[in-house]
Every structure is written in C-alpha cells, then in structure tokens.
Design a protein around this nucleic acid. Structure first.
Lengths: 196, 196
DNA sequence: AGAGTAACCGAACGATCGGTCGGGACAAGG
DNA sequence: CCTTGTCCCGACCGATCGTTCGGTTACTCT
C-alpha cells in the first residue's frame, strides 16, 4: 500500500535533473557526459531510463505545453467577457511559468533543429494563436485599445510574460508569484505611467 | 579612390553569414561544417579570415553591445526629464534591435558556456542596470507608477522589447520599425486598456 | 537458497566536433 | 620572367559526440 522509498532514478526524477542542466548550458551545449555527472550515474545508465537525449527534451517540452494549454480549458478562460478572460489567461500564464519554470524555459528556447523541436514550435504557435484570438475579441468589444495591431500586441505581451524564464527564480524572496502576476497584469493593461 | 570590387570574404562579410546560421541553429548547434556550407567556402578557409568559431561570436555580440551602449551616450538619453529620457531609450532600443537584429538576437541568447559568453552576459547586465537607474529616477519624479518595483518593471519592459528578436522580420511589410517603436512605447507607458 | 530482474557500470562504437597543415591557384608588382 | 601575398582547398588531427553492448551488482519474490 505504501509507496516504497526510492533511491534510484525514475524517468521523471532523471528528467528534473536533465532539464536543469539543459537550461544552464543549453540543450545543444549539454552532452550526455554532463548529464551523467549531474545525475551522479554513468552515461550508459541514463539509457536504462530513457531512450536518449531527445526523449528528455520531448518529455520536458510536453510537460510545459500541457501546462499552458491546460489554462485554455479552465472555466474562467472560456466563459465571460473577453477582456476578463484575457486577464485571467495572462495571470494564469505567469503562474504556470513560475510553477513549471524549468520546463517552460526549455520550451521557449528550442530552435527547431530536430523533429521534436519543430513539433514544440508548432504547438507554441498554436497556443499563441488562441490567445491572440482572445485579444482580438477584447478589441472587438472595445475593451482594449484598437490603435495597436492585435498580432503585434499579442507578441509584445507574450514577450513580456515569457521573459519571466530569463530572470524569475522561485527562491528570490520579496518577489512572490502573486506579486509578479499583479505587476504583469497592471503593466499589460494600464502601463507604466502614473494613473491619472 | 574607388573601393575595389570584392568578391572574396572579409571578416565582416563572413560574420554576417555566420550570425545568420548561428541564429537559425543556435551557436552550439552550429558546426564549422554548417558555416562552410552556408558561406560557400571550405571549412579550413574560414580560418584564413577569423581565428575560430568563438571569434565570430565575439565580433557579433560586440557589435550588438556597441549599438545598445551607444544609445546611452546620445544627448536625449543624457539630458532632460527622466521619464522622457526613458521613453527615448525605449524607442531607440527598438531601432537598434531592428537595425542590428541578427547580432542582438545572438547576444540575447548566449548562455555563459565560454569566457566570451560570460563577458557578454556581464555587459548586458551593466546595460540593464543603467536603464533601471533611469526608471528609478522617473519613479522618484512621480512620472511613473510607484506600486511596481523598479527592478521588476525594468525586467518586464526589457522582456517586451527584447522579444522583438523572436518575431520581428524586416521584410514583413505592414510592420515598420516606426510602428513597432510606437506600439512598444504606448504599451509600456499606457498599457493595453482603452484610454479613459 | 535460487531465480528473476531492475539499476547500473566500463569500454568501445562510428560519427562528428573545432581546428591544423602543407600546398595550389591566381593576381599584383618588379 | 619570378617573387610575394591573398585566398582557398583536401586531408587529417585528437577530442568529444550520442549511443550500444556485455556484463556485474543488488534487491525482490518464492
């Protein structure tokens, strides 16, 4: 009944080590040798748990994409006024980025050199597109300024949110997930300027 | 007096080819073979023009950093009200990002695996710091909202601007450099919400 | 105790990595 | 003509790449 204590690797626990190294050195810059040192097992032992380097990448970006697409299935993202659904998605994106930080970080850095990477890029584009549709609906409602093109605004907002992976570290005290989500939401909707 | 026609490579012309490939495949994902195919000369010939792969990276990120730091030396970035200097820097950053797109793209993607990369990261941090000081001054003047921490706001604004390298393509008609700069400035200072 | 298997290892594979070497083609200057 | 220097090449270097293989350890179940 009780889960036996595990002092050996599972594909998942190995993944968490690998993703960390991938993010430090870059996927291409990480050798299986690097992974084996970080995991504390031999290079060949890694292949007992996963089929190879690319499977680790695939598992990682899948997890990130599942988190992001999961947002769009939530009730607050599906019903209600478009501008409010948009704000909900923006805040939830911050939450997913922070909670799944290393996996999303890896996702946002794939270049498209392999089939796995190209698939990840395609899924990302699909997600971006769905959020862009939300922004378009909010603009049609007149709740969002119409003088900035929808695609351009989407990209800039995504750029701001996605930049989280470049600097957010969960341990850095004084900057909780909630504070970041508030700041992003305020900046996105009201901008930097002092409220009039 | 007239410059002789050049049908051979110079370090600079080779650099422009190399940077393009670096940005497509990632620096670590690019081999000297890849570069030689793209340049149309043999692998060994590349070493006639540059000392190696890392020099190409160093030249590229130097060019990008020169462009960015150059902004801070300009008159409008040095004199006047802080909030206006900040807006000027933001707009000029967009201009530099677009005009030096491939070089800045490469700069924003270095991971820190080599001495060159670590130096680039250090210079980037220095630039970010100086812009953060500008934002802090604008906040002290009361021209910028005080409820978002300066460092956090700086990072988010940088995230938005730097995301340009992920999607801006100079050939895409209907989206000129000026339009992007306007959109960024409006979004940063006024946000998405319909003006009241 | 013995069988079965999950977890792991060192050694080695062919391929590719960044970089070196000696020399050939060619134009310019004498 | 011959030299000089630029630009380029194929062949090759030792090192490292991701991966495979044969085999050992150690735990589980009967």
């Amino acid at each position: 009944m009780t889960t036996a204590k595990r002092d050996t690797y599972t594909p998942e626990s190995l993944l968490s080590v690998a993703v960390q190294v991938f993010n430090e050195r870059g996927y291409d810059g990480t050798s299986m040798e690097h992974l084996s040192k970080a995991a504390g097992i031999s290079k060949s032992s890694i292949y007992h748990h996963v089929t190879g380097k690319e499977e680790l990448l695939r598992r990682a970006v899948s997890r990130a994409l599942d988190g992001l697409f999961g947002i769009l299935d939530e009730e607050h993202a599906r019903v209600g006024r478009a501008v409010e659904r948009l704000e909900y998605v923006v805040r939830r994106m911050v939450e997913v980025l922070t909670s799944e930080l290393p996996y999303v970080t890896l996702l946002l850095r794939v270049r498209g050199n392999t089939d796995t990477e190209r698939w990840a890029l395609e899924r990302r584009r699909e997600f971006d597109h769905q959020v862009a549709e939300l922004l378009k609906a909010a603009a049609a409602d007149g709740d969002v300024r119409g003088d900035i093109e929808v695609r351009l605004a989407t990209r800039l907002v995504f750029g701001m949110i996605n930049s989280l992976v470049e600097w957010y570290r969960p341990d850095s005290r004084g900057m909780g997930e909630r504070e970041v989500a508030d700041a992003v939401a305020q900046l996105v909707f009201s901008g930097l300027r002092e409220e009039r």
